[in-house]
Amino acid sequence: MKWDPEKYTQFSSHRDRPFFDLTARIAASSPGRVVDLGCGTGALTAALAARWPGAQVTGVDSSADMIEQAGALECAPPNLEFIRSRIEDWEPDAGTDVVVSNAALQWVPGHRDLLRKWAKRLDAGAWLAVQVPGNFTAPSHVLMRDLAASARWAPKLEGVLRHADAVAAPDEYLALLVEAGMDADVWETSYQQVLPGEDPVLEWVRGTALRPVIAALTAEELSRFEAEYAALLRSAYPQHGWGTVFPFRRIFMVARKTA
């Protein structure tokens, strides 16, 4: 699946906030090695490098386009590096003190098993901080799935959109981390985001949830699909004179290895 860094960062003020809400709960004072899994354009990874200038900070992403943009960051701190790799292939080395993954693991089938493995392999005292979207039952996603499953689009889009196992419930994440030997804090937040412009929810999902559909359809097909989908979104998320409210639920977990 191809990512568009420019489209992804279109709503960066909203997309970045959960990252800072997440990492603010990491109490590591002077870690030696920090890893950001699913680092995207690298701008937020650079914030980790600036926060911990004594740490070697590594951003990991499977997208060549994202890693290319990350590598071109202006004024990148000297303790920052980026590598292209799948999250599924990453394993914590000895001495890894902080692992962050922001809005990435929902794309990784079986990520619960990865979390268990990472938690068990991390050294005592290491931190694991993860945020995943919890909005798969929101109208934006339900309408997309229903349209993709309709008689008109199913021949092209059957099986393209994952949702049933994309993320777990907060209590499942909590149990998983505690049973793996971590002291865990898990919570959820619903952000009442106000988006500007015409069809802003469609513009938002073009950067993330709609990517599998974009990859599966021709340009002409995508134009027709988006026209139908946009009409549904306008009904579900009415525009006000001051913007369009797009509620977004997110699930957070911050844990420290105790044994």
Rank of each mutant, 00 (worst) to 15 (best):
W204N: 02
W204M: 10
P212W: 09
L143N: 10
R112T: 14
N135Y: 09
E198V: 05
V213Q: 13
V194H: 02
V100Q: 08
A103V: 12
A148N: 08
G207D: 10
G207A: 10
R211M: 13
Q193C: 09
L174K: 09
M182Q: 11
L176T: 04
N102L: 03
H163K: 15
A175G: 08
V100R: 02
A148F: 04
T189D: 14
A129V: 07
R112L: 14
G181W: 10
V142C: 04
A138W: 00
R211V: 15
L202S: 00
P170K: 06
G197S: 05
A126I: 06
L202G: 14
D185G: 11
R162F: 06
P155N: 02
D199H: 06
R121G: 14
P109H: 09
A103Q: 14
F136M: 01
A180K: 01
R112G: 15
G110H: 03
S150N: 00
V201A: 06
A124M: 12
K117E: 03
W204F: 09
V108A: 01
P212L: 07
L114R: 06
A154D: 13
L161E: 10
E203Q: 13
A169M: 11
W107V: 06
V108H: 04
E198S: 12
A126Q: 09
R112C: 14
A104H: 01
E198D: 15
R211C: 08
P139A: 13
Q193T: 07
A119Q: 04
A103C: 15
W153A: 13
H141S: 07
L114I: 14
A184E: 01
V132H: 04
G181T: 01
A184T: 00
L161R: 07
